[in-house]
Simulated scan of single mutants.
Amino acid sequence: MSTQTKGIDISKFQGHEINDINTSNTDLNFVICKATGGITYTDPDFSTNWNAITKQGFVKGAYHFYYTNDAPQPQSNNFITALGDNFPSDAFPPIVDFEETSIKTQDKNQIVSDLLTFLGILEEKYGRVPMIYTDVNVGNEYLNDPRFKKYPLWIANYTTKSAPTMPGAWTGTEWVLWQQSDNYKIGDTANDYDLFNGDLQQLKDFIANH
């Protein structure tokens, strides 16, 4: 793939930015928003963002911020409650955000087992193969189990403008989704900036196959 499709990811920290942007006044094609975290938290702007992303013409996605000290079943229940029983077929697959601040416990085997359980619950519920968001350090430290490879990786790497390093179970594979910056400005609002490794049609094909 040579063409890259541009997007951002947002949460309550971007306020009501989604109401001011669309596919006509930006060169963005997708917007991913935070839905939930742990077993009780729901982003206060999730419902508004989730609906507005579609109205503004973007491909959409939603993620759950995972904590290792919360059991996988109630975490998945929290995410599913926010998203509803039917996950849109034209959206990114469900995404789990697993990063440094997710790590609240020490038993790596338990962390791996619980995270795989969480992913499996979402896959069974929605019939979609979830995605994982992480960075190189966490990926190399915790996500080496080959069972993770089936889940497409959204890699965070702000230090390179060439192809990002793929960690853990994805070593040697081609990147799919890349969070390249956390300071992409739209007006005065800073956003996380993301690239999909393909054109818009390839993005839609990816979604259809995951």
Score class of each variant (00 low, 15 high):
H210Q: 15
V59S: 02
G15N: 02
T36K: 07
Y67F: 13
S24F: 05
K108M: 06
Q202A: 15
T26G: 02
P94F: 12
T134E: 02
R147Y: 04
S181N: 08
T134G: 02
Q110H: 07
A62I: 10
D20V: 04
Q4Y: 14
P44S: 14
K34V: 08
N77Y: 04
A190K: 15
L177Q: 08
T117A: 10
S113N: 12
K60Q: 13
I95M: 13
G172D: 06
E174N: 15
I95P: 01
S181H: 05
N22H: 02
S113K: 02
Q73H: 09
D9N: 14
D114L: 07
P44A: 11
Q56C: 08
A91G: 05
N144R: 11
K161I: 08
A208D: 08
N209I: 03
C33Y: 03
G139S: 06
K125T: 14
G172T: 10
F148W: 04
F46K: 09
N51L: 12
E99V: 13
T171A: 15
T26H: 06
T68V: 11
M1G: 14
N197S: 09
L83K: 04
N25C: 10
K104F: 04
K60H: 12
M1Y: 10
D45I: 07
N69P: 03
D20F: 14
K185G: 03
Q201A: 14
A169E: 03
T5E: 02
T26K: 07
N29L: 06
D145S: 03
W175C: 08
T48P: 00
P93S: 03
T40E: 05
E123C: 10
L177I: 15
Y158T: 11
D9T: 09
Q180E: 14
Y158C: 09
L115H: 01
